[in-house]
Write a protein that binds this DNA or RNA. Sequence first.
RNA 1: GGGCGGUUAGCUCAGCUGGUUAGAGCGAUUCCCUUACAAGGAAUAGGCCGGCGGUUCGAGUCCGUCACCGCCCACCA
Length: 931
Amino acid sequence: MADTSSLESQAEMPTIYEPQQWEEKLYQWWESMGFFRPEQQIESGLADPDAPPFVISMPPPNVTGVLHLGHAITSAVEDMLIRHHRMAGRPTLWLPGTDHAGIATQNVVERKLAESGATRHDLGRARFVQEVWDWKDEYHGQISGQQRRMGISCDWTRERFTLDDGLSDAVLEAFIRLYNDDLIYRGNYLVNWCPRCESAISDLEVEHEPVDGKLYTFRYPLRDPSGASSANHVEVSTTRPETILGDTAVAVHPEDERYAHLIGGTALVPILEREIPIIADEHVDPQFGTGALKVTPGHDPNDYQIAQRHNLPYINITNVDGTLNEAAGPYAGLDRFAAREKLWQDMAAAGLVVTDKPHVHEVGHCQRCHTIVEPLLSTQWFVKTKPLAEAATAAVRDGRVKIVPERFERNYYHWMDNIRDWCISRQLWWGHRIPIWYGPDGHQFAARSESDALEQAIEIYGETVELEQDEDVLDTWFSSALWPFSTLGWPQFENGEATGDAASHASDLARFYPTTVLETGYDIIFFWVARMIMMGLYFTGEAPFKYVYLHGLVRAEDGRKMSKSLGNALDPLDLIGEYGNDALRFTLLTGSTPGNDMKLTVSRIEANRNFANKIWNAARFVLMNLEADEVALDKESGPNSITYALPPVAAQNLADRWILSRLNAVQTHVTQLIENWQLGEAGRQLYEFLWSEYCDWYIEAAKPRLYGGQPEEANATRQVLAYTLEQSLRLLHPFMPYVTEAIWSHLPGVAQHAESLMTQRWPTAVGQRDTQAEDSFGRIQDIVRAIRNARAEYNVEPGRRIAAVFAGSGHTLVHENLALFTSLARLDAQQVAIESSANGSDAGPSVQLNAGGLTTYLPLAGMVDLAAEQKRLQKELDNVDNQINRATGLLSNVNFVGKAPQQVVQRERDKLEELESQRKQVAASLEQLTA
RNA sequence: GGGCGGUUAGCUCAGCUGGUUAGAGCGAUUCCCUUACAAGGAAUAGGCCGGCGGUUCGAGUCCGUCACCGCCCACCA
């Protein structure tokens, strides 16, 4: 076996599980062993080379960012899925990487430069870009270090970066193909402009937020052809007075009688006194404001449309930095908001102002820097999205891509159906530069390099000419859209051949594409998921993944979005440091359902840390009772499945049969739940099983047999203890990889035969549910609980062993499991009597408990409060009567009996029978007590 | 203006295609340092499942509607 001596040195298990002692060491070991790589999985025999691979493209974090809880939940979910499928024997590939994150990264570096008073323009393009690369190199190590602390079992040998050579090549290829297919075009349109970033941004990058503004109403002066001066204006409202300077018309509704006489007339732009027409357009809402609309085609999308319909001129009054230009006349040079104030004052002086009332309206802000976005006419590059969107819609409609939870498919359709062309050019320096060169006459050459472009140019011009490359870079999401296939070797290995000294991963595209699951937060469906589907279909003919699993957003305890400025953000690395990786990820996995947000409460992380510690201590108990040379292994099951042998059924007692049946159930349920994407529920079931059944009951039930039983009994118990623990660790491993691996490395026998828990086979349910054992053990639990309850009620000292008489037809249960009862309920074995008749007690005043199908008498000498007991039993009787009435009513309802499924009716009959016998018991007890 | 989600115990949340008397964690109360674990154990209390109406033998679960909270999309000046 491999060198795990560093692990085995921790032979002694301390009483508390300390994640810090394990996490880094285990992670380094896992990674160094190659467990994260599909090749190793196949070589080791864990993965079936013929099984369909399970592949996830990791959403690449921003390379200069800091990981937050959104990354933590992404990591937790993806790692869970990967670990599960790896154990299940599919070759798994989880491909990691980072994103150059255009605007975000450039902003960060620009801010850094600003500290020393410099701008990117001071450095120039080449030096600035080099500065960003340096920054990237520094931060990349930080990010991947953080990712490793998240414990993600991804294949680092395949790590990619959106600006590395291969991916840049993919971007070139994609752009050029789309360009040649007329799906990319350049044009002068109204775009969203961020005056702070000094770049265009896409519709998606605009966030609308309500802003307290004003609705300004003013008089639009009219040129009156008749010369009359009485009604020489029309009132118009706006929220942005400065745009008046760019007006090219005043519009009214064609059927608005109030203004019919004005149509065809001329208005005068205030202050500038430029003449503009008065037109009629359906878009104007006569009910809103004054019913007359100023038209600013250069700075308003609606007005832009109106201008197109009426052939109006477009005037741009704004510079790239948000100041006004010479078209604004006397306001040139002022910032747009300063100009707004000044113009309004000037208009007031000119007697044109009517009112300015407070007005809350939705205003677009830049997603990255929160500056108010300005609609601006500018020449940009666009992707023609309609045809791409139609194909992408079809892929979801016909089920090639399934979105979990399904309701997000509606969102997706709605967006796709209303999609607008995607503005992909950015006036930045950090990113993939647009591969277009312009000839002297503006002719465009799409090329992979300048020399390619020059060759093309010679064909056109017949001679060598000077070409200039487009200055802009592409939207960072353009490269992200290619991620699932660009990272696997597209376009280099598009046709499958891996030639020459090609990378050893040459066949990745063929082997691992399309990927299996795309897992991410629902907030980037449009930014990323939708675009990957569009591009994947277009370039590879296949949807890039089969499933989209969307997790909810992690919110602060106050329900708000976590953010540094609000001071309510928790740092996942701090949480990992304090509570352990397992505790955090288990909390994230079990804290919500797909697509629903979660408020992360520290108390839950703490509870899950306690859970890790609980399992650790359960394992300590088991190991204390295992003597390595005595524990039999079941070696039949193969190298990745070696576990403890089970004792023959004849040697198993009721508790053994019960816990094995429960394990069987949990294995089945958890596997089904994972297959149905109910990851949280799967985790919760494991929690319940391990804590409430294995620890609280099975281990307690095992103690009397281990300490007081015959050697063969003790041995059988040890085997079941060990087997159940080992199998449970496998089931829990995807949810809590570290503590399970740490424990597993201590398991005598199995850990010597195999390297790691993470490369063990996912359990398949062995044998059958043992309903008889589950029922009997359930009765024991009921009786024990009833006795414990009575002890607590009567304040019996916890250590005191008490007498008990069991009576009733089910007494063989007690007979066969006497040691269990005496141990679990602290009974005095010398003073336990079992009577077959129902009237078992003549030992004086007793507490009578009716549970588990028999009556238990506790002769608590001198302590029994007869009146209280009578009251308690009466209450119990009433309760049983209520239930009997309910069941009787149900069963006498012909509709129920006739229409409900047979098993439901039968269950009700069985229940009634049980209730009736219980009633007899309780009634008898009551009678006896009063007698 | 469209659309989506939520509303279940004091708090944070489960409850999958309708089928026992609705669950967990935290918190609360009482007791216990019992040789796996006090990051623990035993027990207890606490819920008209947001309101109203409907479908059904049967509704926390399905349908309609209303209320409140949150989110997404959207070109109302």
